[in-house]
Nucleic acid binder design. Sequence first.
RNA 1: GCAGCCGUAGCUCAGUUGGAUAGAGCGCCUGACUGUGGAUCAGGAGGCCGGUGGUUCAAGUCCACCCGGCUGUACCA
Length: 542
Amino acid sequence: MKRPIPKLYRGFRDIFAEDLMMRREMIEAIRAVYERYGFSPLETPAIEYVDILGKFLPESETPEGGIFAFLNENDEWIALRYDLTAPLSRVVAQYKDLQRPFRRYQFGPVWRLEKPGVGRYREFYQFDFDTVGTGSLIADAEACCIGCDALEAVGISRGQYIMKVNSRKVLNGVLEKIGLIEWDARKQIIIDKKLPRCQTTAPDSNASDNTVNCGGLTADKPVSYFDVLRTIDKLDRVGMVGVRELLTKGRKDPSGDYMPGLNLDADAVNTIENYLTCRVESRSQTCDLLAEIVGDSQVGVEGIAELREIDEFLRALGYDEDRVIFDPTVARGLAYYTGPVFEATLIQQSIGRTLLSDNQSTNQTGVSDLPSDYPTGSVFGGGRYDNLVERFTGQKVPATGGSIGVDRLLSALKYLRRGKDRNSIVQVLVTVMDKRRLTEYQLIAQELRTAGINTEIYLGGGGIGRQLKYADKCGIPLVVIAGEDEFVRNEVEIKDLQLGMKLAEEVEERNEWLKDRPAQFAISRDKLVESVSETLAGYSLV
RNA sequence: GCAGCCGUAGCUCAGUUGGAUAGAGCGCCUGACUGUGGAUCAGGAGGCCGGUGGUUCAAGUCCACCCGGCUGUACCA
């Protein structure tokens, strides 16, 4: 008979108490910020119909890749949600009597069928807030403020993160300028003009099939708006030189993969480069520079006006350039964004390398390795998406919102707090010295529990040494000890393991260690709760 | 998807040019210590050497395929 092998499906993980406690604390802090801005909670199911998620391939009966999709008992395609925004637009479309603007927040897992990487999982958590039903740019400015406030609320201090804001409209303005798209102001939509592209093949490629490993880019396909966006999005990875190559002749990356270029002309590439590098510290000056690049493009002009308005709102509230900057390189993928977009990243220096000197493993060269969960990328992102609900109702419903990448933020926080004592959800362990007195031990525990103290009775085997070891390994700070002697005197012993651990550093002889019974004291039985509470109060709870 | 690297104990890894019962450190368990964590010491458990097929007198070691993992790249609503 075959036994099942205990193992996890790729990209999924078990999360234990330590991380869960930290996450819960973090979520609470963020929730408080969201609620302070007037957002209410919402919960939607994990599973939706695939067409609600908008994930059918064009002209196809089966869902696109990237999501966990299944056929249900009625042969309908259903799937695990891949974000919290699509379900939100379903809710808004479905419950027509919701008061708008509808403001809600939602925390929960989402699932994506992608290759897992460092800090990337197939099941991960998002914490979103959205305002649906207003075009007011205050909502966008507010979203940036909320992002900042939330990061600071969980302990990322000012200067350790930066909120970067851009506008899809400005980006579109640039693309219009180079002739890739046309803006229909009346319908507020983009007409993708798709530039023709010459045959370009990898210089040393002998393969006849150029569609392999080009991410949907083929040599003879026309260049679309999305291709350029995608390329811009790669700036932080391949650098300006790489972007230039990808926009023109193509690029071979260090692994040897060749990616065909977009074959844009020199003017277009120069315009894009100008655009990507035009940022200056002042937000309003950045707008001035953007205005020069965008020229008479109507979307571009519109986008800049929006940015200026956001700048004004932010300025009024004291969110200056030390926290929020305008950054033309922010593209936010290909998402549904239609206006302002924003993302917050952690400043690597403050959170990464400089903190790694002590406890990290070293590789063969003796150089300190970055830990496997080293935080990269953005921890918060969002933007305006004015036509997501339209899919359901045909009506434009303006919306904007943001999302915190809970897992990434958590791993960053683990860094900042690393080195702190491990703590357990259990505050007191009641040891069992005399099995005939079990009832007494239960009463002790009960008393502590009634007082709101998390208490565990030791239920394993072994003597007192074993029990203390257990408490120690589990990170339980306090132990209550009572045996025959104590019962006779109507006392209990309280042992402070955390304090004891500190004292132990100076003790070498075991006899000495035993004799002193460090950090242990007897109290009368009726002072139990009082005394335990006092000792626990000595610990910082964070 | 594509490319490169790697699979030996719970973890990190040794394992000679193919050669007998498969090794270490850490961790885990039991004890020394009368009713006390840490330290120290002694002992113990734990391996289809990722799988299958081949080459060979002989395979952890060589070859092929498969599976799994890591890294880069692509996709990422």
